[in-house]
């Protein structure tokens, strides 16, 4: 399948189709021929040992890197090689391993940025605070509060972001991504560095999102968390897809356990 086609017929009804994705950095092959689907309304977990290229894969899908071979198709349209902000408009957004919140602004101010992508009022109107601009600001505010609510952080909206714990900041960054009303949300190690309590809160929030019908692709190291929230698990190791299927079954596969040798969080 040539990666140059603009429109690829959806061959599986999946929201996101990754096909034969290959990425090299100089002489180093990160992964090759990676293919998997993400069905509408499902939560797919992406796991694998350190250095397997999970973040690189997400970067390729979210427009930050261009794969060398292969393509990703979102809702029938090719998205690899498209700029991140365009993808956000199309309904794909992602989080990063650090929350990168503006520390001296309030949580609300941080999250409302995510809602901007849905705005259409003319920018010049901002200079004199035109009616259209002010109305839009109210809509942004509503979207932001709804997003904060869905991760359970609505009560923090007025606090300065710097006063939050790492776990709370992470949840806020998820809210910021949600504020753009995405159809596909990519999460890059949301539980990294969180303590047990915070991981629990995160797990709850993600489960709620999954139940509400959001489509999520989540990279995680915490295998316990990921098996709890995911409908399906994809294992990336040794430069390719090692396993793909039901979380419990995948984790029991010998090959997967071996790939994780020395880091067995399984069960």
């Amino acid at each position: 399948m040539s990666g140059d086609d603009q429109m690829l017929a959806p061959d599986s009804g999946a929201l996101l189709s990754v096909r034969s994705l290959t990425k090299r950095f100089g002489g180093l092959q990160v992964f090759s021929d990676v293919s998997f689907d993400v069905e509408r309304g499902s939560v797919v977990g992406l796991i694998g040992p350190n250095g397997a290229g999970k973040s690189t894969l997400i970067d390729c899908i979210s427009g930050f890197l261009r794969p060398d071979v292969g393509a990703a198709v979102f809702d029938g349209r090719r998205i690899t090689g498209v700029a991140p902000h365009v993808l956000c408009r199309a309904g794909i957004t992602r989080t990063f391993q650090h929350a990168h919140l503006l520390q001296n602004l309030s949580v609300f101010d941080n999250v409302v940025v995510g809602a901007h992508v849905r705005g259409t009022a003319r920018l010049a109107g901002a200079l004199w605070r035109s009616r259209a601009v002010m109305a839009e600001e109210r809509e942004f505010a509503d979207a932001a509060m709804a997003a904060l609510d869905s991760v359970g952080c609505a009560h923090l909206s007025g606090s300065p972001a710097g006063a939050l714990t790492a776990g709370q900041q992470r949840l806020v960054s998820v809210a910021r991504a949600l504020a753009s009303q995405p159809r596909l949300l990519l999460l890059d190690e949301p539980a990294a560095g969180l303590n047990e309590h915070e991981t629990g809160a995160l797990s709850e929030a993600l489960t709620r999102l999954g139940a509400a019908g959001f489509t999520l692709l989540v990279i995680e190291h915490d295998v316990k968390l990921i098996t709890t929230i995911s409908h399906r698990l994809v294992v990336l190791a040794n430069g390719g897809v090692l396993a793909d299927g039901d979380p419990v079954a995948v984790c029991e596969q010998q090959a997967v356990v071996e790939a994780y040798l020395g880091t067995s969080h399984v069960h």
């Binding site: 992602r94 940025v113 992508v117």
Partner: peptide, 12 residues
């Protein structure tokens, strides 16, 4: 604060 975050949030 962080350009990639801005890009991912739809900011050109």
């Amino acid at each position: 604060a962080h350009e990639p975050t801005a890009a991912a949030a739809g900011i050109n």
